[in-house]
Structure formats: C-alpha cells, structure tokens
C-alpha cells in the first residue's frame, strides 16, 4: 500500500462519511424528539436525486436551481409524512408508529417504482463535479471535495439553527421533555415539523451528493445507505447531533479502509458496519457521545 493510495482512500472515506453524517442527522433528530426510528428516512433520501433528475431533464432547469427544488420537495415530503403517518400516532404504542414508518417506507419506495419505474437512471453530472485534481501522484475527483465541503457548510448551518436560534431551543427542549415543553408554551407540532423539514433537507443534500458519486439512481437505492446512516446515528449516540456526525464519519471512513486493507474479503463490506455497531453497543450501549440513560429504581 503506497502512501498516495492511502491518502486517496482517506479523502474517499471522509467523503462517504460526510454523506452518512448528512443522512444520520435526520434519524437522530427524529429519534431524539419522538423516540421513533424513522425507517422511511432512506426513502426520503432516495427521492431527492429523482426530483433533481426530473427537474433538470424534463423541465430543463439549470442544475443548481434543480438541486434547490429537489431539496425543497424532499423536505416537504418528509414533513408531510410526519403529518399524515406519525402525528396521529403520537399517543399510540411506540411500535405502532414504527409500523407506520415501515408503511411510509413501502409507500415511497413503490410510488417511486410507479412514477419513475424500477429501471436505474443515469444522472447527469455537471462538469464542475467531474474535474480531476492532481496533487503530485494523488488524483482526486472534485465530487469528493464537493461532498466534504458542502457537508461542512450544511452541518455548520444546522449547528447554528439547533444551538443558536429560538427554533433550535424549542427542538432541544422537546427532546428533553415533550410534555413540559408544551406546558411552557412551545409549539410542539411546529417544532416537530421543522425537525422533519431539516432532517429531510439534509437527507436530500446527502442524496444529491450520493448521486454525483454513484450516478445510478433507482427506487431501492435508499435502503442500504439509510440503514447504515441509522447505524451511524446509533454508534454516535442516538439523539446527539454531533454524535451522528461523528458516527457517520467513523462508519464511512472505516468502511473504505476495510475495503482498502482487506480487498480479499470485500464481499463482507456491508457487514463491517454491523460489526462496529455491535461492538459499540456492547462497549458503550448509549453510543460514543450518547448520554447515559439509567432507569430510576
């Protein structure tokens, strides 16, 4: 293994990790507030590149505008799914909301098959994202830098919203105690909607960057990245936003390095994240940055 290749893979791992982080935020925020594993989040992620594809191909809009439209539409879908499928179940047993999330996941995935067909589509990649950068012997595609850069910008924005604005305060209050927040005059429904909007918008950014990196899109493309991002959220400490970022990075990086160092067993690539998950759960059940929750006796 040459140093160049290692560096190249580290950049690659960072890039993949930042995508996982973007998706993981949605899981962790929703779980933090509703204690719901939103199994439909991977499908929300899948919709964004499709929206982008159609607005740029059919309506021939410029790429950047299509991207914005795609993000807005995806965020809207996420918010609507909460209004329709989760809100009525807020006082129901938690498992019912989980089943509802599975229902939404089935619905979005199959709606995508109906609307967009199950045949993979090739995404056009703007020239800006296909440039090759050469640093001595290292050659890195601009997509990788772009995904890292855009992720950092978007995540900084998120941190600003969550920790510096009034809306963010409301969201954090609800995740501590939904009932007390309601009594204190926090508009719980609004804050939950905003949570879904933010989570879905981040997933949309992740989905678009994903489609630049892997330019084939298909209705089931969200399943595995979604699951891995959820695991990233658990590994980082579910409910914790910095945890989701850390978990995403850790998973993306270790997945790439796993394939790099053990090419002979790269077929086990997808199982590696689960092994990390299980190790973390045994060593630190609440995740790396999770807060310890102990039942009061």
């Amino acid at each position: 293994m040459s140093l160049t290749m290692l560096l190249q893979n580290i950049v690659n791992g960072f890039s993949l990790g930042s995508l996982y982080a973007l998706i993981a935020i949605g899981y962790t925020m929703v779980y933090g507030i509703l204690r719901l594993i939103n199994f439909a989040h991977g499908e929300v992620f899948m919709l964004a590149p499709y929206f982008l594809f159609y607005s740029s191909m059919i309506f021939v809009l410029p790429w950047w505008l299509s991207a914005i439209i795609a993000i807005v539409l995806t965020a809207l879908t996420g918010m609507l799914s909460e209004r329709i499928a989760y809100k009525p179940l807020r006082d129901a047993p938690r498992i019912s909301a989980l089943i509802s999330a599975i229902g939404v996941s089935f619905f979005l995935q199959n709606l995508a098959i109906v609307l967009f067909s199950g045949i993979p589509k090739s995404v056009h990649r703007p020239a800006f994202f296909s440039k090759l950068f050469q640093f001595g012997e290292i050659r890195i595609q601009s997509t990788l830098f772009a995904s890292i850069g855009i992720s950092i910008i978007v995540l900084s924005l998120l941190i600003y919203i969550v920790y510096k604005t009034k809306t963010g305060l409301a969201m954090r209050a609800i995740s501590k105690d939904i009932e007390t927040s309601r009594l204190m005059g926090v508009d719980v429904n609004k804050a939950i909607s905003i949570t879904f909007v933010i989570g879905s918008a981040l997933a949309a950014v992740g989905g678009i960057l994903w489609s630049l990196r892997f330019p084939q899109i298909f209705p089931t493309m969200g399943t595995i990245p979604g699951l891995k991002a959820f695991i990233a959220a658990v590994v980082g400490g579910i409910g914790s936003i910095p945890g989701a970022m850390l978990g995403g990075m850790l998973l993306g990086m270790s997945e790439i390095l796993f394939v790099t160092f053990f090419p002979a067993i790269s077929g086990y690539r997808d199982s590696f994240v689960f092994i990390i998950l299980i190790l973390i759960l045994f060593l630190k059940p609440d995740g790396i940055l999770g807060t310890k929750t102990q039942e009061k006796v």
Partner: peptide, 24 residues
Amino acid sequence: PIPGLRMVTFSVLLLILILYKQKG
C-alpha cells in the same frame, strides 16, 4: 401493467389500518 401499484395500494391500506387500529 403498472409495476409497484400493488405495493403502493397495500402500503396505503397498511397505514390506514395502523392509524385506525393503533393497538392492532
């Protein structure tokens, strides 16, 4: 034929069922 329509319908039914029969 419209592939996927069956599961779309099914998932809508599933959602309706769980929303109205929250405890099964």
